[in-house]
Design a protein around this nucleic acid. Structure first.
Lengths: 196, 196, 196, 196
DNA sequence: CATGAATGAGCCTTCATTCAT
DNA sequence: GATGAATGAAGGCTCATTCAT
């Protein structure tokens, strides 16, 4: 009953769930599949999670929180807002590229049934939006970004851009390096597409 | 009776399915719900669709095809690529704003289980991507857009931006006019966020 | 509305039902299959038969009655009970051999759900049993058959023997001539298997 | 729990299925009926059998195998082929008489949809035919039965005779002792019906 | 804590029957 | 009489959840 044991089973179940959801999707995944994948009995899962949906929600909370946290940390190392922004895009891609199953779940499966932005994940997504927004605000204040920048819109544009890049990469069987596209995405976002 | 009646039932079922899927999500929607919503008997649905999934696929094919078609038509009226691009963004928002239930389905529900970009919808989404890409290419050739523009990346960035704008609008209970954000999105995409 | 037209549709439906039942079995046959096979609309079938089961019952009544009738007719031409008995066996086989689909239905399909000897067909089967029994009685009286012959048992033995011969023939894909076995069957029944 | 419990549930379901099928027929029996009759939940049935049809097939395999085995055992105790044959007939009747519901299922229900001699039961029926055939062969060799006996035909005749006796007994509400007819059947088969 | 056999509510789909044309 | 689109009751099967061991 030490927390360690608890955490260990909990973690094994979450990790198994990521793999299973990535493979078959949430609704087509069976609790029995997760049990088999995690090497515990079906009943054991219900010692750690009240329902199947709670697995999904918990999985998302934890993974998304880790994702956002790992993004936030590195930005302070960068000297100015444009550099932070480039770093954020690269980091976004690196994290998802390093865990393709998580990427699959986040990009494709977790959008099901309003469960992604709505509901369970709202807080984490919100704090990621806040993170992006704060970089943009800082840039406006520093004079690196234009004064009339509509920060909320720009936040969504950037997030949507990164998200779509990742989705395409996931659906395209990951045949190229996602992080290699980071500069191009940042360029478009920073400088636009129009001729200078 | 013949095609007229056929089309009418078919349409009623599709339209009912859009409403039901928007309300409860695909997996949580019952065929019986669609029957009740469309005012036909359960068995009647199976005269027009082989399975519940076929309703989803057909719905998406038809709606997405209509969506893409209605976007393509207006672009030729615009004088230059930047204008076309602005028009495309505005049109994207207008179409989805005019049919909020369809927007809900496309933005939230149809992403389930790999069914959106993968599989059934690949063709329609692909032709939308082609449409965006052709506007960008044209702009590069005309000199309106920069020569070194990475067209594929930019296409995904723009699509992702519009998509995220719509998702946020849908999830935010549609408390503002989506089309009013079109210029801001286009501005960011065309000119970037950096100070001129 | 003349009886002729009625009879013609009625007959087409019955004949189609024989083929469909022979092919797929009663429970696996759809009323729509019979409609298609007979070239009439589904609704038309219900102008001639109240239910699907009534088709089966009617089919059986008519076919079995015809079968028994066609057997009875020829026996009077034979000179003595042993000859009649041989003729009966041969005739039994000939009739079923000449209409393999009817044979399939009678041997395999019509036994379903107690519908063969029990219920609908009881009368016809009973009169066939009576026919066999009368040949046996006649033979006892004429001295051709033994005095202590248990007629009811012998009737069932003969019927069962012919029935099983036909079933084996049907299930064995009809790779030989059923009628060619008639003499052997009659020999066994008449003389037994023990060394003379 | 292990095999004991497994076998016990398996057996309870099979036995319940025999009763339910005997009562209502295979196609008219509901899986829920079998569940109620066996005192287990519907889902439990599907832990032991993949489909409703598998219940029927398994039931038949097991019962028929037991039937054939219990017939074979006693024959070696008999001194000569005619005695063996009489014993076989008596045993056939005794076994089915001792389990009327099984008899009902075998005689009436299991003939449905080609499922009896064809398909699943072919092996067991075949080995019963072999058993009968071997007694007949032995009798020909020993000189008890006539040299020119057509063994295959005689096998079917005997099986058909016993089968029909049982069917009549089942359908006749079992108002008499089936085994009391064994000698008469054996007499007819051994000595024929013709006057000695 | 761990197990996995047992449960039974729930849903997709089929198809005999009806009835408006 | 003829049609076949429409109906909706019914049933096989699944699977999240429970609980006795």
């Amino acid at each position: 009953m030490p927390n360690d044991a608890d955490s260990e089973k909990h973690q094994r179940i979450i990790d198994a769930a990521v793999r299973v959801f990535a493979r078959k999707g949430y609704y087509s995944s069976r609790v029995a599949d997760i049990a088999k994948e995690s090497g515990v009995a079906v009943g054991t899962i219900y010692l750690y999670f009240k329902t199947k949906e709670e697995i999904l929600v918990t999985l998302f909370h934890e993974k998304m929180a880790g994702f956002v946290a790992s993004l936030g940390g590195v930005l302070s190392q960068e000297p100015d807002p444009p550099a932070k922004l480039r770093r954020l895009v690269r980091r976004h891609f690196e994290v998802l590229e390093s865990d393709p199953e998580l990427a699959e779940v986040i990009q494709v499966e977790l959008r099901q049934g309003n469960k992604f932005f709505r509901g369970a994940s709202a807080r984490e997504v919100g704090s990621y939006f806040d993170l992006i927004g704060s970089v943009l605000s800082e840039g406006v204040e520093s004079g690196d970004f234009r004064k009339d920048l509509p920060i909320k819109v720009a936040t969504k544009v950037l997030f949507g851009a990164m998200d779509q890049m990742t989705t395409s990469w996931v659906l395209g069987q990951r045949t190229y390096k996602l992080r290699d596209t980071a500069d191009a995405v940042a360029d478009v976002f920073l400088a636009g597409i129009a001729r200078a």
